[in-house]
Protein backbone atom coordinates (compact mmCIF):
# COMPACT_ATOMS: atom_id res chain seq x y z
CA UNK A 1 0.00 0.00 0.00
CA UNK A 2 2.82 2.32 0.97
CA UNK A 3 4.68 1.53 -2.23
CA UNK A 4 1.60 2.40 -4.24
CA UNK A 5 1.25 5.74 -2.49
CA UNK A 6 4.89 6.54 -3.06
CA UNK A 7 4.71 5.73 -6.73
CA UNK A 8 1.52 7.78 -7.09
CA UNK A 9 3.25 10.74 -5.43
CA UNK A 10 6.30 10.23 -7.58
CA UNK A 11 4.13 10.34 -10.67
CA UNK A 12 2.46 13.52 -9.52
CA UNK A 13 5.79 15.17 -8.75
CA UNK A 14 7.18 14.16 -12.12
CA UNK A 15 4.11 15.61 -13.81
CA UNK A 16 4.40 18.86 -11.87
CA UNK A 17 8.09 19.18 -12.72
CA UNK A 18 7.30 18.38 -16.33
CA UNK A 19 4.66 21.10 -16.42
CA UNK A 20 6.99 23.55 -14.74
CA UNK A 21 9.69 22.81 -17.28
CA UNK A 22 7.25 23.14 -20.18
CA UNK A 23 6.08 26.45 -18.76
CA UNK A 24 9.59 27.82 -18.49
CA UNK A 25 10.38 26.73 -22.03
CA UNK A 26 7.20 28.39 -23.16
CA UNK A 27 8.07 31.67 -21.50
CA UNK A 28 11.20 31.79 -23.60
CA UNK A 29 10.03 30.83 -27.04
CA UNK A 30 6.39 29.97 -27.42
CA UNK A 31 2.99 31.35 -28.11
CA UNK A 32 -0.49 30.14 -27.32
CA UNK A 33 -2.30 28.58 -30.25
CA UNK A 34 -5.85 27.29 -30.36
CA UNK A 35 -7.92 24.69 -32.06
CA UNK A 36 -11.33 26.27 -32.44
CA UNK A 37 -13.18 23.01 -33.08
CA UNK A 38 -12.58 21.95 -29.47
CA UNK A 39 -13.79 25.22 -27.92
CA UNK A 40 -17.22 25.42 -26.29
CA UNK A 41 -16.94 29.15 -25.48
CA UNK A 42 -17.15 28.64 -21.69
CA UNK A 43 -14.91 31.65 -21.04
CA UNK A 44 -12.63 30.02 -18.45
CA UNK A 45 -9.56 31.12 -20.46
CA UNK A 46 -10.68 34.75 -20.61
CA UNK A 47 -11.67 34.72 -16.94
CA UNK A 48 -8.23 33.49 -15.86
CA UNK A 49 -6.04 35.67 -18.05
CA UNK A 50 -4.03 37.86 -15.65
CA UNK A 51 -3.67 40.65 -18.19
CA UNK A 52 -7.26 40.62 -19.36
CA UNK A 53 -6.89 39.24 -22.87
CA UNK A 54 -10.21 37.93 -24.23
CA UNK A 55 -8.62 34.62 -25.18
CA UNK A 56 -11.95 33.09 -26.15
CA UNK A 57 -12.64 35.79 -28.73
CA UNK A 58 -9.24 35.12 -30.32
CA UNK A 59 -10.06 31.41 -30.49
CA UNK A 60 -13.45 31.92 -32.10
CA UNK A 61 -12.38 34.57 -34.57
CA UNK A 62 -9.21 32.67 -35.43
CA UNK A 63 -6.91 35.58 -34.63
CA UNK A 64 -3.53 34.73 -33.06
CA UNK A 65 -3.18 35.09 -29.29
CA UNK A 66 0.33 36.39 -29.88
CA UNK A 67 -0.97 39.62 -28.36
CA UNK A 68 1.85 41.91 -27.30
CA UNK A 69 0.50 41.73 -23.74
CA UNK A 70 0.44 37.92 -23.54
CA UNK A 71 2.87 36.74 -20.86
CA UNK A 72 2.64 33.10 -22.02
CA UNK A 73 2.03 32.35 -18.35
CA UNK A 74 0.00 29.30 -19.29
CA UNK A 75 -3.05 30.02 -17.13
CA UNK A 76 -5.44 29.64 -20.05
CA UNK A 77 -3.66 26.55 -21.40
CA UNK A 78 -3.74 24.83 -18.02
CA UNK A 79 -7.34 25.68 -17.17
CA UNK A 80 -9.10 25.05 -20.47
CA UNK A 81 -11.26 22.01 -19.76
CA UNK A 82 -11.34 20.98 -23.42
CA UNK A 83 -7.70 20.96 -24.43
CA UNK A 84 -8.35 23.77 -26.90
CA UNK A 85 -5.18 25.71 -26.18
CA UNK A 86 -1.56 24.71 -26.33
CA UNK A 87 1.89 26.20 -26.50
CA UNK A 88 3.68 26.15 -29.77
CA UNK A 89 7.25 27.16 -30.46
CA UNK A 90 7.40 30.68 -31.75
CA UNK A 91 9.16 31.05 -35.08
CA UNK A 92 10.43 34.43 -33.91
CA UNK A 93 12.70 32.86 -31.32
CA UNK A 94 13.24 29.32 -32.40
CA UNK A 95 12.72 27.12 -35.42
CA UNK A 96 9.67 24.94 -35.07
CA UNK A 97 6.34 24.03 -36.56
CA UNK A 98 4.30 26.93 -37.81
CA UNK A 99 1.37 28.13 -35.71
CA UNK A 100 -1.77 26.54 -37.02
CA UNK A 101 -4.03 29.22 -35.55
CA UNK A 102 -7.71 28.67 -34.78
Amino acid sequence: MRAMTRSANGGMLARLLHRDRRQREALVAALVVAEASRCVECGICTYNCPVGIDVRAHVRLGTPIADSHCLTCGSCVARCPRGTLRFEASSVFAPGPKASGG
Binding site: V40, E41, C42, G43, I44, Y47, R79, P81
Partner: peptide
Amino acid sequence: SRPGLAYLLNGTV
Protein backbone atom coordinates in the same frame (compact mmCIF):
# COMPACT_ATOMS: atom_id res chain seq x y z
CA SER B 1 -22.24 28.74 -23.79
CA ARG B 2 -24.51 25.84 -22.84
CA PRO B 3 -21.58 23.51 -22.04
CA GLY B 4 -20.27 26.30 -19.80
CA LEU B 5 -23.26 25.81 -17.48
CA ALA B 6 -21.36 22.86 -15.96
CA TYR B 7 -18.54 25.22 -15.01
CA LEU B 8 -20.98 27.79 -13.68
CA LEU B 9 -22.44 25.05 -11.46
CA ASN B 10 -19.07 23.93 -10.08
CA GLY B 11 -17.96 27.50 -9.53
CA THR B 12 -15.05 27.72 -11.97
CA VAL B 13 -16.54 30.51 -14.05
